[in-house]
Design a protein around this nucleic acid. Sequence first.
DNA 1: TTTCCACATGGAAACGTTTCCACGGATGTG
DNA 2: CACATCCGTGGAAACGTTTCCATGTGGAAA
Lengths: 331, 331
Amino acid sequence: MATIKDVAARAGVSLGTASRVLSGSSQTSPDSRSRVLAAAAELQYVANGPARALRRARTDVLGLLLPDIRNPFFSELAHAAEQEARRLGYTVLLANADEDRDQEAAYLRTFASQRIDGLLLAPQQGGSPELESLHASGLPLVLVDRAVRGLDAPLLSTDNAQGVAQALAWLQAGGHRDVAFVGGPAAISTGVERRDAYLAGRAAHGISTDDALVDAGDFQLGSGTDAMLRILDRGVRPTAVFGADGLMTAGAMRALRQRLGDEARAVEVVSFDDLDWFDLRSPGISAVVNDAAEIGRLGVAALADVIAGRPVASQRIATTFVDRRPAGGTA
Amino acid sequence: MATIKDVAARAGVSLGTASRVLSGSSQTSPDSRSRVLAAAAELQYVANGPARALRRARTDVLGLLLPDIRNPFFSELAHAAEQEARRLGYTVLLANADEDRDQEAAYLRTFASQRIDGLLLAPQQGGSPELESLHASGLPLVLVDRAVRGLDAPLLSTDNAQGVAQALAWLQAGGHRDVAFVGGPAAISTGVERRDAYLAGRAAHGISTDDALVDAGDFQLGSGTDAMLRILDRGVRPTAVFGADGLMTAGAMRALRQRLGDEARAVEVVSFDDLDWFDLRSPGISAVVNDAAEIGRLGVAALADVIAGRPVASQRIATTFVDRRPAGGTA
DNA sequence: TTTCCACATGGAAACGTTTCCACGGATGTG
DNA sequence: CACATCCGTGGAAACGTTTCCATGTGGAAA
């Protein structure tokens, strides 16, 4: 593999000059410039990233650490973040914590060792010593989707209260009293915020406050099934279901079908997060639209600001709502 | 940020000894060992990855370049690949080509510059100069899911012919004659293989050979809708649809609903790729199960073998089939 | 013509590791 | 007791860049 030294030799210039041409950092004569470029092309020169990173003390790499890449919300977020990072000249190192604190900690160590320029993180519950020390070390850090108690970093998150209010209004318009709520983990900020907003708002929207109708999962599909089964097995018979994320809503539908068979279709469904296929089922599934792409984009932009030393504020992203109730309603 | 030099000084040993302790490469006395470890802990020493990579000429990083991370097939593959890589001591650098050749080429350059130890690639159509030269440079390379003409690298892919045969058998059992086929791109090997197997096998399974029933997309959801709309607008009226991947199948269903409304439910659907929610729709969507996780796992294992210089052979992964036709059939 | 400045260049230091080499002391064998 | 061996260590080179500093050459200004 050719080094810059080989390129310099072939071009008949010094190593320093070759570097100046190749990195474009400083003025060079048109003559040496063209000779170096030609030599580099002939030798198929590719700069050695680690060497460059070592010397410049930056890598132009951003870390993106997500809880679950198979969750469409996060894969969409990752996609948008990557596009934006690319636009800003960064490469993204994507890692998947699998909703597991140890794995998150392990990746944080890896990132620290790789000397990434900044980290975009959708954290696990409660932080970790690794996260503390990474932040304490001054690594530019931006949180997305979820907050960490006691960690002072900019956060880009959904306006959960707004989204829940939209869902509640929709439930009320449908005349529902017995609504099953499949919430998220009590240890994750989005779980808490959505649950609290729901519990606080339900009475005002004419919804039963019977807590037998409420259960929770961990934002993964199977847990939504389990939670809904627990609810149904308490003997209640909801006329609508509200899931705190897209995957758990899907899981809850599976539970409904298991217990109620074809009658499951009579139960109206609303989800926090809109998935691709929610319009394909009949009747359609209404949803709070949680703009993952926007969060990813803004997150990377904010991270770039932090890296550049510009001030950055936390931000709530507004939700919209898509009503897929068949004309005529249910009630 | 503390360096190994600081650690050595604090422990009262030479730089070389500190390195030997920290990297565990060579014997050290218990005494210096404990002193170095203590010093490292006190200083919160984190090894500088780029420096290490520069010196050792390896990074312990694998590249994973996928066409579309939002496609559940690939996000599942990525997840499994990452787990396996982690198990083998590698970090994964994940990148998303977005079904775009230029972006793929750009990432290949980035990977080359980062000096990754190996690349797991689900390529775009027809390769690229960047891919050629990367492979020519001796970078360990394993392909997943898709082949590249003229590129001699191990390939782990689905047994597309088998999967199509399973779908054909199912269609025949359902008594279908007019079957719409939404194929993949003619430039991608999986697209070609599935289409060829279907076209070659349909007559023997009692399926119409009218090519008005056949169209193609690009493996993304919207393209499935478009293809299906084209088919329907030719005036044919299929009793079943076969989609060449999960997303396009979903897209085709959207088209059916647009054109046929509630009667769309009478059209039976079978998909190459099983998605999470195919059992939730009624009637259920039958599917060829394409084991993305297995491909990801085996791909990384194969890549590790290539890196270690062990011989590696291409491999076809068998498909299974899940029949979700309601008892009693349709015919 | 002389002085000065700008600018392109060559050489060398520096980034933080790993690893080679040589040395010294302790251990074991004859 | 003498010699060979082994093992842990210190010192230094090397990895491939970027960047600082000094030098020389050109042209512009006086």
